[in-house]
Amino acid sequence: MTSAVVTSTDRARGGITARGRRPRRLTAGRIGLYAFLASAALFFLLPAWIMLLTSLKPMEEIRQGTIFALPLAPTLEAWAAAWGSACTGLTCEGISVGFWNSVRILVPSVILSVLLGALNGYALSFWPVRGANVLFAILLAGAFVPYQVFLYPLVRMFSSVGIYNSLAGIVLVHVIFGMPIMTLLFRNFYASLPRELFNAARVDGGGFFTIFLRVMLPMSTPILVVAVILQVTGVWNDFILGLTFAGRENLPMTVQLNNIVNSTHGVRLYNVDMAATVLTGVVPLAIYFVTGRWFVRGIAAGAVKG
């Protein structure tokens, strides 16, 4: 066939021969698709953007009621106040107290619950004991039950052994309620490893803890990362447990934040409130943006925690 033959489709396109890449027609569908995706992005970004803008404005600007406007005189004063001098009820020490409390709660809670979860998952996967899987099933089901069902008896138990309203108490509570998801994560990870690996280690004379520490834990880096991310964000974002068990001295950042914003006497300082809110959100957000894919894996696996 030569170019002299003009085909019907060629003619329909006004003599231009269809050749090479299909022209990128911006169809209505494609435009609609991007429009939808963009407006969705706007919906997700807007509250955070407003929060950030507000935290950078002085109160006079805020009172003008233009939350979308960029700050005319950007200032970090609200941030400084939120960090160091915002008031919760009578004390005015800022959210920094809550920040450090959260850190003190976070570190032991995460270490303990991750290690315990790894140990549980390892035992469940490789050392079958009669009844262990029933225990695990109950534990998993327990993860779906609202905390309210357990809280009052736990408070009684904790106060009877003297750890209610203490750092030890809140850490223990996080370990308890983190156990289902941590165990699940590690159990599934170890169950996906070839069983021959475990058999080989046993044949070579490894015992329960030797195999765990020498063979399994060194291979567990990926799931350890996921578990740590999950537990750090989980503990950091917790409100109800900290409120109930931490006690006045150890209130975590979320509780402190809520106290600052929702129980202010007199005039509300929205810029300080928003600065404190941003500060509280910064830790999990930083983890989210830094760890990306791992975080997604974590929430997909840990979605049960809710």
């Binding site: 489709t9 269809a18 090479g20």
Partner: peptide
């Protein structure tokens, strides 16, 4: 799959972009 360059004809029809 879209072609980068060239043409595909089915019989007399140029179907490159179809």
């Amino acid at each position: 799959i879209d072609v980068e360059d060239g043409e595909i004809h089915f019989g007399e029809r140029n179907v490159t972009w179809e």
